[in-house]
Amino acid sequence: MKLTLKIWRQKNNSTPGKFESYQVQANEHMSFLEMLDVLNQDLIESGKDPVAFEHDCREGICGACGVVIDGQPHGLLKGTTTCQLHMRFFKDGDTVTIEPFRAQGFPVIKDLVVDRSSFDRIIQAGGFISVNTGQAQDGNAIPVEKEDSDASMDAAACIGCGACVAACPNASAMLFTSAKVSHLALLPQGEVENEKRVANMVKQMDLEGFGNCSNTYACEAECPKEISVENIARLNRLYFKSSLASE
């Protein structure tokens, strides 16, 4: 199949970007990123600058890949990362617009590559349990209700790709932050530090320049791991408790 790609090209964060059009010959068995590989091989061989895009595991778990394809982060399929999207969902002659995740919290590095270190800083602000190696008691010493453990796992499945921010009309990072808060808050081991963790993580999230959540739920719809906005409600509750009720 022959496709026309409209790809955002931007040399670096201080240079304005623009769209450029490319033709690429793909086939339906390729993954979306393999289609971009083909384009890049062509570009390199013809002496042009290849399109920079981030990727690593190519099996939907590392969270490195992520571009906006025709207006949707990670493309049209639900519960799928960009690397898991295959070309059989496109038709011969299609024009596909590919843009980076756009948010002030994710400055563009080059083309489709953005800097998501703001997510690291949010985790560093409190997305952990303060336990040193060797301090742990026996793993079975604290029973955890299966439902809680499962809900915690649902939240912990977040791959930190940033699609929630990219999808949100306000570029809010609430789903990401709430997923980590929920993962830890739902476990007795993590509950101990809830109030401090929530306060610090929200503070950092606000500092990073993300927008405010207005409950459009675009994040949940585009999240490749289908993480629920229930987590955002939980974050809100914990934040009220932390801000208004803690000593």
């Binding site: 349990i129 742990a136 793993g139 029973p143 299966k146 453990s149 830890l184 476990l187 081991q189």
Partner: peptide, 22 residues
């Protein structure tokens, strides 16, 4: 065995039985 204990303490959500144990 220490690894499992350490990871549980860190909040790794290992699969659990209905009784709450690993």
């Amino acid at each position: 065995t220490d690894i499992i204990d350490q990871c549980v303490a860190q909040g790794v959500p290992f699969a659990r039985e209905y009784g709450g144990l690993l």
